[in-house]
């Protein structure tokens, strides 16, 4: 006879396991084409954020001031910058609703991000997560591994 799950097990599944199952769909953000320069250069300091997480305008804005990149000099020589910029533009989000609401483009301030990351935002406010841009702190698996350049 099959054991029916206890109420406690059901509560565990609903409260703990279900919210983290979102990670299973991380591959939805993978770009259609690969680009070695994007992966190598961006992942030198943070994961190479998938181009589909920002619209083209935001990527162009970011790539036009890499020498002042969120408080850090991330300048690149021209050819490489143009090559990565073109890749980001080709694979950017088509949907304007992904535009961030900050004065500088920020994936973490877009409505969809805030809606889906309430738990992470709580941890970040408590100082238990240093940066919301540290996707790999919670998201594990081969798709994230690829974006970390490892």
């Amino acid at each position: 006879m099959i054991n029916l799950p206890s109420a406690a097990q059901l509560v565990f599944v609903l409260l703990i396991a279900v919210p983290f199952s979102a990670a299973a769909r991380d591959d939805a953000w993978q770009p259609r084409e690969d680009n070695a320069a994007w992966r190598a250069e961006c992942s030198a300091c943070h994961i190479a954020f998938p181009p589909a997480l920002l619209p083209a305008d935001d990527w162009l804005d970011i790539m036009s001031r890499l020498d002042k990149h969120y408080g850090v000099d991330a300048s690149l020589e021209t050819t490489l910058r143009q090559q990565i910029g073109a890749f980001l533009e080709r694979n950017a989000a088509a949907n304007r609703s992904l535009t961030s609401r900050d004065d500088v483009p920020r994936i973490t301030s877009a409505d969809w991000f805030v809606r889906k990351h309430q738990g992470a935002i709580r941890l970040w406010r408590k100082g238990k997560l240093k940066s919301l841009a540290d996707c790999a702190a919670c998201h594990k698996g081969p798709d994230i591994e690829r974006m970390t350049g490892n």
């Binding site: 300091c45 994961i47 540290d134 702190a137």
Partner: peptide, 11 residues
């Protein structure tokens, strides 16, 4: 000689 961590991104 030991590994470090990016002061901003934690990488």
């Amino acid at each position: 000689t030991q590994a470090g961590r990016h002061a901003k991104t934690e990488k």
